[in-house]
């Protein structure tokens, strides 16, 4: 197991008290696996990834639980040891390639910098590798692109350069935080292709953070659905899409516009909005918005096995799981 996260809880000080943003999140990621973390804004996806990277530097933040990477505990790791890991074994690409590069240096120089931060290698060797990486990421004329400043490149090229930088030290784990959100659709598809190819060409595992169920369906082997900082459901992507165990997952899937059949007059949406971390209900956090809510939802449901998935809902245990969905177009 490459990465094993157990009971990860991240609490940030808000208004003078510690509020758990992410609560008891557990999942595992195997070698060459792509795991999707889905959830709406504020569900704790990014905080989870930043916690794994050790990049939460809010004064007073408390991170508890366990994050084991290649058998090594990352929670509480000394800053120096973490630094050697970051960028070398765990790399991250960010949502907005427009702002993720330092504007005053060329893209090539910034990639060189990462290589040289982790390896004793000459400037020209580093640049040669940078150019090769950019070429591998499908950047046309990589030599010229390496000499350009971030603002001179298109969003797609910048995101490719970002991925090239993340891969520059051959990391075992790549965390991609909404890597396609800021890009237009055609470029999005290319970048997702690139991510899928990484495990073949680089043997990397990918933690793909997104709010786009379509992206998950296309890309991820397994999926973790977060709601309000808690795991709602996790399991193999195919099974999860075919028969979601959690009403929230089902509602998310219902809100994808169908590609075939009659066009719905209105897409179904989930009424209400997710609770703020400080005002999370004591029971099931989804209960106030759930169509199936009943008395037993007042107690926070534990994760239970349901088919191939683990679901934090009382319905499967009560013997009335959600019906399977028609997923013909998904398998295409």
């Amino acid at each position: 197991m490459l990465l094993a996260v157990r009971d990860l809880t991240v609490a940030l000080p808000i208004g003078g008290r510690l509020v758990p943003i992410v609560e008891s999140v557990s999942f595992t990621l195997g070698a060459r696996e792509i795991l999707g973390i889905v959830g709406e804004s504020g569900s704790g996806k990014s905080v989870t990834s930043l916690a794994i990277m050790g990049l939460i530097d809010v004064p007073g933040a408390r991170i508890s639980g366990s994050v084991r990477f290649r058998g090594r505990e990352l929670v509480g790791l000394a800053p120096r040891a973490y630094r050697a890991l970051r960028g070398r074994e765990i790399a991250m690409i960010f949502q907005d390639p427009m702002t993720a590069f330092t504007p005053v240096y060329t893209v090539g120089r910034q990639i060189d910098e990462q290589i040289r931060a982790h390896q004793k290698i000459s400037r020209s060797d580093a640049r040669a590798r940078t150019v090769r990486l950019l070429g591998d990421m499908g950047v046309p004329d990589p030599e010229r692109v390496a000499g350009r400043y971030p603002h001179q490149l298109s969003g797609g090229l910048r995101q490719r350069a970002m991925i090239a930088m993340a891969l520059s030290c051959n990391p075992a784990l790549l965390i991609a935080d909404e890597p396609t959100t800021a890009l237009d659709v055609t470029v999005q598809a290319q970048i997702l292709d690139l991510l899928r190819g990484l495990r073949r060409d680089y043997g990397s595992s990918v933690l793909l953070i997104t709010h786009d169920m379509g992206v998950v369906a296309e890309t991820c082997d397994r999926t973790l659905v977060l709601y309000s900082g808690l795991v709602a459901e996790r399991g193999p992507t195919g099974a999860l899409f075919a028969q979601p165990g959690h009403p929230y997952t089902a509602a998310l899937l219902d809100s994808i516009p169908p590609l075939h059949g009659p066009r719905p007059a209105r897409l179904p949406s989930i009424p209400g909005s997710p609770p703020a971390p400080a005002g999370r209900p004591a029971g099931c956090p989804f209960a106030p918005r759930c169509a199936y809510v009943h008395d037993s939802c007042a107690v926070r449901p534990p994760l239970v096995a349901c088919g191939e998935q683990d679901v934090a809902c009382v319905l499967p245990a009560e013997g009335r799981p959600l019906p399977p969905r028609f997923v013909a177009e998904m398998s295409a």
């Binding site: 800053p79 970051r86 960028g87 790399a91 702002t99 993720a100 590069f101 330092t102 990462q114």
Partner: peptide
């Protein structure tokens, strides 16, 4: 800024 976070994610010293 985002790019400062990127720089830290690269494993550079503070």
């Amino acid at each position: 800024e985002d790019f400062m976070r990127t720089a830290r994610a690269k494993g550079l010293s503070p």
